Structures are given as C-alpha cells and as structure tokens.
Simulated scan of single mutants.
Amino acid sequence: MDGQQDGGHRIVVGVSGSLGSLAALHRAVAEAARAEAAGRRAEVLAVLAWAPQGGELAYRRAPCPPLLPFWREAAVGRLAEALDAAFGGAPSGVRLTAEAVRGDAGDVLVRTADRPGDLLVVGAGGGLLRRGLRPSVTGYCVRRAGCAVLAVPRPVLQHDLAELHRRNRWHLPAEPLPSR
C-alpha cells in the first residue's frame, strides 16, 4: 500500500557502512522519529546494494552461481554490522527494516524509493578522487529519483580523518623501522 494512502511515510536510506552512510542512517531515523512525533506513521528502509566479487561485468564474463549466496550473505552481514555500528542493533521507537539488494547502489536506491511520497536519504560526498574512480551515488540519486532526496553532508569526523590522512600521507618515519 502506498505510504501516502495509508497515512505513512517511507524513508529509504542507502547504507554501505561508511561514516557518511552511517550519518545518513541516523538522519533517516531522526526524520522517521519526527514524523512519528507529528502523528504520522513512518518506516525506515535501510538498503545496502551489493554486487558479485569483481563487479557485475566480471560476473557476466565468468559467472559462478554457487558463490552468489555467499556474496549475498556477506552483504547482509555488512548491513547488520552497519546497523550495529550506528545504533548498537536496531534503533528503538522507529520501524526499521533492512535489506541487501543486488545491483549498482544508485540504481538500487532509485528503484527502491519508487513512490512519490518516499524520502530517499543518502550520504553526500566522497571527495574528488573517489568520484573520479567511481560515479557519485548521491548525484545519480538526485538526478534520477522520482521522490525527494536528502543528501546528508559528510560528518565532521570524516573530514578530520581525511585531513589527518592527507597530512600524514607524505611523512616517512625519521628513523628506519626496527627489523625482526
């Protein structure tokens, strides 16, 4: 039943386990809690997109169906770990369901948040280098979603870790490391 017809609100959130996706997960739960406080039924659907090892193209070239259940199980495990990292399990007071779906992240999220009343929540920003290596899931969702998209900024901790990594990347130890 459509979330608009039954008075409910469905919030779809992309989860990968990164700090940005954990921030998006927290924001999605906060949006659901806000809807519940306003007297509207709300549900969070946490979605982790997964692909076979090496990607879909590699799998099409050399399919190995017996491995698919293992890859799917690994994705379900990553999703459970992300929920545990974010909330210590499932958050209380909010209806949350989670699923691992095979496919490219942007496409999976846009196909899942397919109702006009849905809210799609994604973590924003992977940096210029990351976007050069892999297209932006956030940008894909903003351009293609048929519902509202909320792009949650990178958490301050993620900025701090990236800066620390940049500063320390070029520094070598002053003395050679002891050999064993």
Rank of each mutant, 00 (worst) to 15 (best):
M1K: 06
G3F: 14
D6H: 13
R10W: 03
I11F: 02
V12F: 07
V13C: 04
V13A: 04
V15A: 03
V15T: 07
S16T: 12
S18F: 05
S18E: 06
S18W: 04
L19Y: 06
G20Q: 04
G20M: 01
S21I: 02
L22S: 03
A23L: 08
A24Y: 01
A24E: 00
A24C: 04
L25V: 12
H26V: 07
H26N: 08
H26A: 11
V29W: 07
E31D: 15
E31V: 10
A32H: 09
A32M: 07
A33W: 11
A33E: 14
R34N: 11
E36L: 12
G39P: 02
R40F: 10
R41K: 12
R41H: 08
A42Y: 07
V44R: 00
V47S: 04
V47Q: 02
L48I: 00
L48P: 01
L48Q: 00
A49W: 09
A51D: 07
G55I: 08
L57V: 12
L57S: 10
A58Q: 03
Y59L: 00
R60T: 12
R60G: 09
R61D: 13
A62D: 03
C64D: 13
P66H: 10
P66W: 13
L67D: 12
L67T: 11
L68R: 11
F70P: 01
W71P: 01
R72M: 03
R72C: 04
A74D: 14
A74R: 14
V76P: 00
G77W: 05
G77L: 10
R78L: 10
A85P: 04
A86C: 11
G88M: 14
G89M: 05
G89H: 05
G89P: 04
P91R: 15
P91K: 13
G93F: 05
V94N: 06
R95P: 07
T97I: 06
V101G: 06
R102Q: 10
R102T: 00
G106K: 08
D107V: 05
D107N: 03
V108W: 01
V108P: 02
V110A: 01
R111A: 15
D114C: 10
D114L: 04
R115I: 00
R115G: 00
P116T: 09
D118L: 13
L120F: 02
V122S: 03
G123K: 01
A124N: 02
G126Q: 12
L129S: 12
L129I: 11
L129H: 06
G139K: 00
Y140E: 10
Y140N: 08
Y140R: 08
C141K: 04
C141A: 14
A145L: 08
G146E: 02
A148L: 10
V149T: 07
L150I: 05
L150W: 07
A151H: 01
V152E: 04
V152P: 01
P155M: 02
V156A: 15
V156S: 14
L157V: 15
Q158A: 15
H159G: 14
D160N: 08
A162N: 13
A162D: 15
E163A: 15
R166W: 11
R169A: 15
H171S: 12
L172K: 03
E175P: 04
P176R: 13
L177W: 13
L177R: 14
L177Q: 13
P178F: 07
P178M: 05
P178A: 05
R180S: 11
R180N: 09
